[in-house]
């Protein structure tokens, strides 16, 4: 529907009205999504920016120099954040895909209860959850290290992965697997050649969510990391009050992977894909 059909005389005004509306919609959406990022970028290159000036009166590359300089450990924190998010994503896929399959394909006693309980970590405030977990983590030596932070990030991410996959599997016809077996494929070959390609969009969407949720954790990292694990959100909060220019530059760094990942996986995010349907379960 990118090109409007040649308008008939009687209905021409309505066609134009629709096109206008559509463009207005797109513009509105862009304004909401992109506009808040613009000031961040301007902050990052500003030196003096006071009310009522619309743009800074002086510019400077100082903030970006600070970001690159080793003293602030931005590069280290970025690496740490990436490592934690990747580990968390791998674990989420390994646990969430089989769990989603069980929920999507099988009926068992207490399935509704399990579905509600899976949502609990999303509904209950993370702070409340983590205060309980913290004492346990300290006891088992999981406090103040990457492993502990990765595990605690599973609390908010695993439900997403599981629910996305349960939606995907609910739309998956298991007879495809039986057909493959019948044609001579073993268990693993069936998963590899038949099931995985069918559920792959869901895995991508789930992994994307997991990565981004882990990437942007603040409270969980702060408490379990115990000041020892320095990720980008932690760093960002430190600068937010004292150094708006550096915070702006950091925000830009912080936003980048989200945009990058979204662009790379956009083909799996179309509205009619079953993977996106799974998010409807949340």
């Amino acid at each position: 529907m990118t090109t409007a059909p040649a308008p008939l005389p009687g209905i021409a005004p309505r066609t134009i009205g629709r096109t206008t509306l559509r463009w207005a919609g797109i513009m509105g959406l862009l304004a909401f999504l992109v506009a808040p990022m613009v000031p961040l970028f301007i902050w990052s290159i500003s030196f003096r920016w006071f009310y009522p000036d619309i743009l800074p009166s002086e510019y400077s590359a100082r903030a970006w120099e600070q970001v690159i300089s080793p003293t602030n450990n931005v590069i280290g924190a970025t690496g740490q954040t990436t490592l934690i998010a990747l580990l968390c994503t791998v674990l989420s896929v390994l646990l969430g895909v089989p769990a989603g399959r069980a929920l999507g394909l099988h009926n068992f006693k207490g399935k509704r209860i399990v579905e509600v309980l899976i949502l609990a970590p999303i509904i209950v405030p993370g702070l409340a959850v983590v205060l309980g977990i913290d004492t346990m983590f300290i006891r088992y030596g999981l406090s103040g290290n990457i492993l502990g932070v990765t595990l605690v990030h599973l609390v908010p991410t695993l439900p997403y992965m599981t629910l996305v996959m349960s939606g995907v599997y609910a739309n998956y016809d298991v007879d495809y697997e039986l057909q493959a077996r019948s044609l001579g494929a073993g268990r693993w070959a069936t998963q590899r050649y038949v099931t995985l390609p069918a559920v792959f969009p869901g895995v991508v969407v789930g992994a994307l969510f997991t990565f981004l949720i882990s990437w942007s954790q603040y409270v969980l990292t702060l408490l379990i990391g115990d000041g020892q694990v320095e990720t980008l959100p932690i760093l960002l909060f430190n600068f937010a009050r004292s150094e708006p220019a550096i915070a702006g530059a950091l925000s830009v760094v912080f936003i980048l992977p989200g945009i990058l990942v979204l662009l790379l996986s956009s083909k799996y995010l179309s509205g009619d894909s079953a993977a996106v349907g799974g998010i409807g379960n949340i």
Binding site: D175, L178, Q179, R181, S182, L183, G184, A185, G186
Partner: peptide, 13 residues
């Protein structure tokens, strides 16, 4: 196992 039986099924759909 089904993959070794040599009995191949063609499903209705």
């Amino acid at each position: 196992k089904p993959e070794e039986r040599g009995a191949v099924m063609v499903f209705q759909n």
